[in-house]
């Protein structure tokens, strides 16, 4: 029952109570925004996922946990696999509990006459615009200005694989150390979806596989271990 600030960076388990501000009068309680893994229970904030408590100024708190199953959330960029074409929508597998829909009009430059060239089995990088527990998730491949902005069909000749959501979040941090370390080895293309899917393509199949294997093993390594592996690899293989 210690204060929330003191527990930032510590491991929390479901059922842990974070704030007990209930003894304070209404106006004097700290306000905080609950992110994933936290929920409000009358006057307290209760943890509902195991992981590490994180904090962002001024008052945003969430639990950072390692899981593999994706639960769609609005605004996130995901890698989907087109599984069916039905009428004017594509059904896209994004790894959630149900297939997401993607309208054929939600591509840059698409009109009723000019349909985008999307085949079953294609990979699309797209953004979730509807994602809540009660509705079917919906994707778009354009931003609010109607531009593709990096989204759309991709993935000829690359490799798609799955990692945990924790690793994806680590990779997508601005100035991610993992990406910077890999970048210094050789050039490669990479698409990272918030749903735990990563697509990589490099100059040769061998290099693509090296990058994929390194990314998969990054999760269980500390920074020092990772640097060591990369150093040995760049001496031996390249």
């Amino acid at each position: 029952m210690s204060s929330t600030k003191e527990r930032v960076g510590c491991v929390v388990l479901p059922g842990d109570v974070l704030t007990c501000g209930s003894e304070l009068p209404e106006g004097k309680r700290d306000k905080l925004i609950c992110g994933p893994g936290l929920r409000r229970d009358v006057d307290d904030v209760v943890v509902c996922k195991s992981g590490i408590l994180r904090h962002k100024e001024p008052n945003l708190y969430w639990v950072d946990s390692q899981q593999t199953r994706y639960v769609p959330a609005k605004g996130e960029g995901v890698i989907g696999i087109v599984t069916a074409k039905s009428g004017d929508v594509f059904k896209v597998d994004i790894g959630g509990s149900e297939l997401a829909t993607l309208s054929y009009l939600a591509f840059e430059g698409a009109t009723k006459r000019n349909r985008p060239n999307v085949q079953v089995g294609d990979l699309v990088y797209s953004q979730l615009i509807i994602a809540n527990k009660d509705m079917e998730p919906e994707l778009v491949c354009i931003d609010s200005c109607g531009r593709a902005n990096g989204m759309g069909v991709f993935g000829a000749g690359g490799l798609l694989f799955k990692v945990s959501l924790g690793l994806v979040r680590k990779l997508l941090l601005p100035q991610s150390e993992v990406i910077q370390d890999l970048d210094s080895m050789f050039p490669f293309e990479m698409v990272v979806g918030m749903n735990g899917r990563i697509w990589v393509k490099s100059r040769s199949t061998q290099q693509t596989l090296i990058v994929a294997n390194l990314l998969e093993s990054c999760e269980h390594m500390t920074t020092a271990q990772r640097r060591d592996v990369l150093r040995r690899l760049s001496q031996n293989c390249l």
Binding site: P14, R39, S50
Partner: peptide, 11 residues
């Protein structure tokens, strides 16, 4: 269940 990251009321 903890490993899967499911939301739980308590352990």
């Amino acid at each position: 269940a903890m490993d899967a990251g499911l939301n739980m009321r308590c352990l």
